[in-house]
Each structure stands twice: as C-alpha cells, then as structure tokens.
Amino acid sequence: MKYKAEMHSGRGLSENNLVFLAQKAFTTTSNNPEEYRNMTISWAQFNRESLPGRNFTFWQWFDGVMELMKKHLKPHWNDGAILGFVNKQQAQDMLLSKPNGTFLLRFSDSEIGGITIAWVAENPNKAGERLVWNLLPYTSKDFSIRSLADRISDLNHLLFLYPDRPKDEVFAKYYTPPLSKAVDGYVKPQIKQVVPE
C-alpha cells in the first residue's frame, strides 16, 4: 500500500514483488508466499538492524527505491518496463534462456536508491559461452545527468526488454530528441554512455 500510494500509480506490487521484499526483510530464500502471510517483522528488522553484508537497513533500501522511482523512473514503472524486485541470481536465471541482447532492469541490492541493467551476451573470452552482465547501479545523480531511456538507447548491445519486447518499442517515446543546429554560433555538446568491451 505504501509503495502504490507513494508512486501515485495504478501499478502496485505483485505477489512476486512482495515475496522478494519478504525474502530481503526476513533474510530467507523461500519462494512460497504462504510462508510469509502470518509473519511479523520487528522494528529492529525493519529499520534498526543492517541487512546482511550491508551498512543499511531494509527500510533505508526500500525508501531509496521509492525515491528513485518517484523522481526519475515512474513512467517506466507504469509501463511495466522495470521488473525491479529481482535479485542478481534470479536475473541470471531469467536471462540465460533468452536471446543475446535481452536485458532487464532490477533494483540494486548493494546501493540504496540504485537500479541496474542486467543483460545476456556472448562471453568475449570463450566462444559459445554466454554470460549475464550487470552494469554498475545508476542513482538519482546519474539520472539528473542523463535519463534512463537515453542511457538504454546509447547501449547498442541492448536489444530486447525481458522477455521479448524491442527496446525502441518500449523506450523510444522517452528518448531526448536529437539536438538542433547551432544556435548563436555554438554547437551544444552531447553526453553519451558507453560500456567498454
């Protein structure tokens, strides 16, 4: 309810999203939603104790996700372009069964208010082997410089949004229009994202 209210969106959290959040909050791995229905979270688990291996609490992480979404990614959430609540292993399992260039957007486990792009591609060091790659998470600071849609447009190796939607079909309406001709004798520079090979 909090997420839907904060986002002012018709798209709330799915049962899979809620299971992901329960796994994170209770530090468990069960995928069975019934196991979480009668569990209660203590205040310490919610906002006092750091998540395992992290220096932030569950609430700090979740609040960071909501802030990032509200400020920069709400239209993409509403369009269903962001899976979000998927861990690194789940992303790998989902992507390895898809064609090269398939990608998804998931919230970072290690960065408060971060989102990362995971995609499947050939291993450049071993012919025939495929790997899932993860970009360093983007934060609000990154999106104040260049939008998510423009960053995705920049990356030519990203072809299909999971499971099989062409990226331009999903993101083109959010791309920044090409720069116009020089004004007053000045040409405006443009920032473009590149991923080293």
Rank of each mutant, 00 (worst) to 15 (best):
L68V: 08
F85C: 05
N100Q: 15
T29P: 07
E6G: 12
F20G: 08
D184Y: 06
G128C: 00
T28K: 07
D184Q: 04
P196R: 04
Y3N: 13
Q45S: 12
Y36H: 13
G10C: 11
F58G: 07
S180M: 08
V65S: 14
K192H: 11
P166G: 03
L179P: 07
K126T: 11
A182L: 08
V187T: 06
N156K: 14
R165S: 01
N38M: 14
L105M: 06
L21R: 04
H157L: 08
H76L: 03
F62L: 11
R165K: 03
V195C: 05
L18Y: 10
Y162T: 00
I115L: 06
I152K: 01
S147K: 00
R151K: 08
S110V: 11
I145A: 14
P178M: 02
I145L: 13
G101K: 01
T28S: 10
M66F: 09
R37W: 13
E197P: 09
A172P: 04
G10E: 15
I152L: 00
E197S: 11
L68I: 07
A172L: 03
N47G: 14
E169D: 03
L148D: 03
W133K: 14
A182S: 14
E15M: 11
N55G: 11
L83H: 11
V65Y: 12
S30G: 06
L21C: 01
F85R: 05
K24W: 05
F171T: 00
V132I: 01
G114S: 05
H72P: 08
F26Y: 08
F56Y: 13
G101D: 00
